[in-house]
Design a protein around this nucleic acid. Structure first.
Lengths: 184, 184
DNA sequence: AATCATTAAGTGGTCAGACCAATTAGTGAA
DNA sequence: TTCACTAATTGGTCTGACCACTTAATGATT
């Protein structure tokens, strides 16, 4: 007999988070078993598992086969508010995202040598804010950097905000970059 | 009748990744249904869902209730190799991690004004590489930045590598930073 | 009584089948 | 041809079972 599916993925994660906070769990503590959580939170064990998997991805909890589910060590739990709220529910100040992108992209400028070819490639897409920023980032050969930028940019896309830079800014950025290279 | 659980979480993700590649799917294309994937890959639908949820977290696929599961737009799928391999299996070049940390921390220096108090706080922990870098990063009030740094640093910790900077480097960084502020 | 191998209980991992909820494709009447 | 309706498809959730691993309890041995 089904009870009506009032639950949802995000809500379930929030429920477990609240439980962690209310139970005053400290890093290293073991959470209630999945079966217990399911009954307490009035959701199925499958849903509990999906939520726990998400929290595991966020580095908040850690599961050990046969052992249990534990709150992660370190002060990582201090970021529960930030992490889960941000990644899962996408609630972060829009200014944080745009600031972060600007920082990352400025960094890309300072880390990549402005060769003639690169400058031309960038100028070719100067009309399109999105392509411009993407081309810029891919100049960095650090895969990890690209990954992080992509993640942040994904949320920026979901923001439905305007371009990050104006056309004039983009042109100015290229000029400044070019100036950093050659002693002309 | 059970077949023996030869599957594992990581393997399942890899299976779906291979299927995406071999099927020559392009962004926007729909993946086979969960039931179909389960049969094709010889794993349960629950396991398929867990793997898909992970890929969804990585921004590789997107699910629409009643509609299907789709490969994300953009060239994000080009990062399937990078993303899934990195986040899930933690296989990233150590040099990428240290490079990234150095970049982020250099960025912190350039973004934060070297007030007298901040400089003193940093000098107080100059002996400890870990504390030094953490104190530095927390000077940035951008929560998102802190989050990202924390994530990257987590992997660095798991690397069992030496300090990121030598004591001399740390002292030199502080001096250079101090010099950026006051016109002395 | 102390030690250690064995056993039982507990917990995460997987599987199977069913039903709910939303979308999409197909159908038929206007 | 158009559009409302229906059926099929697909993701979302639930239930219960069994497997694999860990941990605690048990009991025999020393």
């Amino acid at each position: 007999m089904h009870e009506k599916h009032a639950s949802s993925f995000h809500e379930n994660i929030a429920k477990i988070r609240r439980l962690i906070v209310h139970s005053s769990l400290v890093p290293g503590d073991r959470l209630p078993s999945e079966r217990e959580l399911a009954e307490t939170l009035s959701i199925s064990r499958a849903s509990v598992r999906e939520a726990l998997r998400a929290l595991s991805f966020l580095g908040i909890v850690e599961t050990r086969h046969g052992g249990g589910t534990f709150l992660c060590e370190q002060d990582r739990h201090r970021y529960i508010e930030i992490l889960s709220e941000f990644i899962v529910t996408k609630q972060t100040k829009a200014s944080d995202i745009t600031d972060m992108l600007r920082l990352l992209e400025r960094m890309a400028f300072s880390e990549v040598e402005p060769t003639l070819q690169r400058v031309m490639e960038l100028e070719a897409v100067v009309e399109d804010d999105r392509q411009f920023r993407q081309r810029l980032i891919f100049g960095l050969k650090n895969e990890l950097f690209v990954r992080i930028w992509s993640e942040v940019n994904r949320f920026f896309d979901g923001l439905e905000s305007d371009d990050l830079y104006t056309l004039e800014e983009r042109k100015r950025l290229i000029e400044a970059w070019r100036g950093m290279g050659m002693p002309e």
